[in-house]
Structure formats: structure tokens, C-alpha cells
Design a protein around this nucleic acid. Sequence first.
DNA 1: ATGAAAGCGCTAACAA
DNA 2: TTGTTAGCGCTTTCAT
Lengths: 348, 348
Amino acid sequence: MSSGGQTIHDVARLANVSPSTVSNVLNGRRDRMRAETLERVMQAMADLGYAPNQVARGLKTGFIPTIGLIVPSVANPFWGAFARYVEHAALARNCQVLLCNGERDPAREQQYAESLLARGIRGLILGSAPLSLNHMVGLVKRGLHVVTFDREPVGADGVEFDSVRVDNAGGTRLAIEHLLALGHRRIAFVSGPIRSSNRRDRFEAYRAALAAQGVAVDDQLVWTEAVAAGDEEGTETGKSAARTLLQQPNPPTAFFAINDMTAFGVYAGVREAGREIPRDVSVVGFDDLRLCEVVTPPLTTVRQPLEDLMRSAVELLLARLEGKQTGPATHVTLPAMLVPRGSTQPAR
Amino acid sequence: MSSGGQTIHDVARLANVSPSTVSNVLNGRRDRMRAETLERVMQAMADLGYAPNQVARGLKTGFIPTIGLIVPSVANPFWGAFARYVEHAALARNCQVLLCNGERDPAREQQYAESLLARGIRGLILGSAPLSLNHMVGLVKRGLHVVTFDREPVGADGVEFDSVRVDNAGGTRLAIEHLLALGHRRIAFVSGPIRSSNRRDRFEAYRAALAAQGVAVDDQLVWTEAVAAGDEEGTETGKSAARTLLQQPNPPTAFFAINDMTAFGVYAGVREAGREIPRDVSVVGFDDLRLCEVVTPPLTTVRQPLEDLMRSAVELLLARLEGKQTGPATHVTLPAMLVPRGSTQPAR
DNA sequence: ATGAAAGCGCTAACAA
DNA sequence: TTGTTAGCGCTTTCAT
């Protein structure tokens, strides 16, 4: 008994039809039988509490209604939210999600991807952002379909990947223009090392937005230091950045953090430096986690339309799996939105 | 091609053996062949880049190396961390994790569980905490093995469930004794409605710990209100509780929050009420999320040994699945630990 | 409109 | 020590 013990044969026997007729019912080929027959089969299924064995179906068809999801770690609230939206979107399409915490380790990601293929899962959403996608190229050639998030979607051999992302540059511009409009001129950029396309895009947009207003970029206000180890979330980075930058002779009056978790770290650093948000310094984040409304003051941030992005990712992936989409890679970019809250106010 | 195209037959042909010999290799029955044969088979596998098809294996054996995980929502940092530890522990045993966000809806949980069974997955870790486990009883009878977290593990028909949990009462006692030792006497208990065994246990322990020190329990300091809707994390609850309780004529000097997210809400409420932590009021949480070290001041809390708990849960589940553990339900309770940080200080 | 039959790739008796 | 065989539950031609 694999799912209650009933098989297609039990149903067939009870309904006085052949197994193939039951299979036809299961697969929606209802035009191939009399209404009365259909009725009998449905009744038999209901009576037995029959549920088809997806493993057997998968073996035969080569398709398992499951997609893989690799994120660095769902313990990070951003990736947790990310995973939840993926799962929501997948569920709406009768798919389930196999969760893999890749810890940003390409070897581990590759191993996971191998394992997905061995399980008959041929669709993967890749949320992490390693330097290259080369470790996925072999898998793609063996039939894995991959949709990436927020990155340069090209691997070795010119293999292209479908992708979804927010308009990182546009979002950053909104944030910087917001701060400029409030009169801030010394705006710090707080990030860890710039090792992903989204960080690069945001950094460039930061410089461009300042330049557009004739504000010179001060390298003293750009923080891209790596922190010891174990700063998965970026909070340590934010904390050291704020602490250090505020000690400078000519400190920033505002911080643009690469993401909300880093911004929360900035909050801690600002307080350690004896300053107050937003009275002394303004802070803007990126992502719009639920936590933004919880912290004090609520964090002004750039919203990523995660729900829509993940819906797009799942749709794209399923279209590939079902063969409805073929040909060159598709790239979806959705607009960002500024969400002003209490952490920003006019420069004094 | 399901995982690269190679089958057991391809390997057999290349190694000049029969498929069953290859199968024997795959299943560790290496004593049934000459070392030289084993060597040849291994070589053939390596040459072909062969990986066994887990779907076919699952169909035959009825066992899929995957466990289901139902949590309310991985977007909540507690459940995110929970999920990550489950996945870690599972990975160590060569299992993967199918993620299900049950949203605390029994119907949805049941549907998920059905779907797991249909996929040949017979092990489930249930992290949510609905009022009853009756919706799982039918599934258990059809072969699903369930390990529950933090709850009264009895369903209808006297069906018992394996379980793991932290010592909720002991942890609460540590928190309350910590506050009492700091001289606090008006200690609020902040929770949403008490609809799970862990909340009940913590509430009772709160009363008992106060009583043990001869401190009368003031019902004015017990907050178990339900908040509108959508307060998955408990932050809204914490905020309203703090705001309201601090307006009372005889306000609390300390808050014990049912979990860290609620404690973060208390932080917000306290600030809205114009008080400062820990100068004016002390706050203790429960769980020990990573965020506790990020907020200002860092949150004193009771640590749940999540990693150990989840390892136990996975071990227990796999032991059941492998038939190594049979008989009555096993219940694992691990000790809690107080983690003092900056949110608590002596009462003034 | 319905059924018979041949597998999907693997495992596990049972033979040899 | 190795091979033969009969399925696991389902899908899918191809017959009828």
C-alpha cells in the first residue's frame, strides 16, 4: 500500500471497466467513454478513497509534479519569504517544492541538483547568487530546467538561463532620490563584497543617481568590506559599517543598505555610535521584509515584488517543463517600489 | 533519460554482468560477488556517469528518501530556522525535505499529508500547532509516520504521535526567576490566545514561578487577546499588549513574551509608550532567534535547542520508517537555557 | 467506447 | 558468485 493501498486495478474491478479506462479518467480523456462509464469510475474512486500513485506515474511519464528550490538558507527571513512565495505559486499549479539550503556553496548546489534529477525532478529555481553558473551547465544539458533569481544568467558554453528579478537599478534610484529630496548629500552605501549582479547593479545605480544630481561620490562612504564569517544575513556588516562610518570626521547623514537585514545591522551600529534614527541619520533598506514594520522606527525600504516574481518564476519553469515554452532564455524584470516609513527624515 | 539517461542495464552491459549484480552493488550487497566484479561494475558506473533512478527505486521498494515538513510559514523567522535545521538533519541521513506551508489550516495540512502519501513519502514532521491532531489520524492509519513538535501528541481513537519539544515549563521558569532575581514583581505575560500545549505549559509555569516566590498573579498583566488577522508572527500582539499594559495605573516593569517575535512587538509598543528598554522596562523572549542579537538592545531570551530537537525528530522519524523503532510513541524533551542579554536589568 | 499488453528502471526472490 | 524472472502502479499505443 503506497497511498492507502488502492490501485487502478481495484478501481477498475469495482467499476467493471479495464484499468486503461480508469487511466483515461485520471488523465482527463473523458471524451473517450460514455458519460455513464465515467460516472461509474468516479463513483468507484470515491468509494475506495482512491488516490493515484504519483511515483508510478512519474516513472512512466518522467514527470514529477515537484520543483526544486535552492536558497542559501531559509533561516534568513528574506529567503524564508522567498521560499514561501515559491511554494504558494507552485501549489497553485499543483506542484510541490523540495527545499534545499545551498549555503552559497556551489558544490552543494550541484549535488542537490544531481539529486533532483535522480528523483525525476526536472525543474529548479535557484535563489542563491554564486559568482558563476558553470556548476549548473552540465545539469542543464542533462535535462534540468533552471530559473535563476537576480543574476547574470549566463553560464559556461554560452548556456543561458531563464531569470526573474526586480529592477535593481530603478529601485536603488528611488531610494537615493528619496534621500536626496530630503536634503541628504552624504549618503553611505552599505554592502558586503560586491559578488553578485544585483549588488553590482545597485552600486552602479547609487553612483549614477548621485551623479545625476551633481553630488560627488565619496569613496569614504562606500562600504564593501567582508565581515569575519557567519554573517549570512548581513547584519554584522551593517553594524560595523555604521559604527565605523559614523566615527569619521565627516560622517554620513544617511545610509542606503543593500538589503533590509543589513539595514537592521545599521540600526544597531547607529545606536552603538550614540546616534538616533531618524533624528541624526536616515536609513533606507531593500526588500521590504515584514520585519520592516516591526522595528523602531519602521524602516523605509525598496519593495521587491517577491510574490509576483516567484509566480513568474514558477510559471516560466512549468512552461518549460510542459514544453509550452522553448527557445531562448526569457528574462522577467519587475519594477521596484519605494515604501517610505519612519527611518528617513529631512537632513538637518 | 531520467537522470542522465543511463539505466542499470547500460551499466550491466558495459561491465559484462547482469542487471541484478549491478543492483546488488547499488544496495551494498558486495559480499555476493567477487572483488573483481565489484570493481568492474564500479568502473562502468563511473564511466557512464550513472546515477540510479530514485523514482523507479521508490516504486519498487515503497520508500522514497524524502520527508515532508509542514510548518505554518517559513516566512516567519522561527519556522525558517526550524526548516533549515530539519533539512540539515535530513541531509545528514541522505534524505531531502518537501516543504509545506500549512498556514495553520488543518484542511490544508491534511491535503498536504495526502499528497505526501501519494508521492510515496511516508514520513512527516509537523511543526504547526492546531488544536487537535484528529485530521492526521486517518493518514497515520494509512501508513504515514508523523513526528510532532511541541504539542499534546494524542489524536482521535487514542492514536499517539511521536514528539519532540523543549522543556517549556522549565524554560519559562528560568525566564521568570531571572526577572524576579532582578527585583521585578510586576511581570506581564504576553501571548496570543492560548491554543497550543506549549502556550498552556508556559502560562502555567509563569503562574507557578511567581507563586513559588510568593508573588500574586495579577490578571491585569496577562495578555491573551487575539489581534485582528494576519499577525502570523505575533508582533502585532506584542505591540498592542505593551502599549495597553503600560497605560494602566499600575503598569508592569517587565514583560515575558511567548516568543521572540512577540517580544520584538513588545519593543515597538514600549517605544510607542515613550518608555525605554531596559531602563524603564525589561523584556524576555522565547526561542533565541538570530535576530535577538541584532535588535537594540539585544533580547534576553530562552533558547530552544532547535538543532538538537530537529535532529531528534529526523532520527525518530527515520527509525520508524526503517522499522527500527516500533511500539508506543516516543517523546523527547530537551532542556531550555536562559540567554541573558541587554533587554533585562534590575527593577528601579 | 473499451480493453489487452508492453513497458518505465529498479529490486528481490529464486535458480543455476 | 551470478543470472533469470516477475513484478511495483501507471500510461499509452494498438486492437477490438
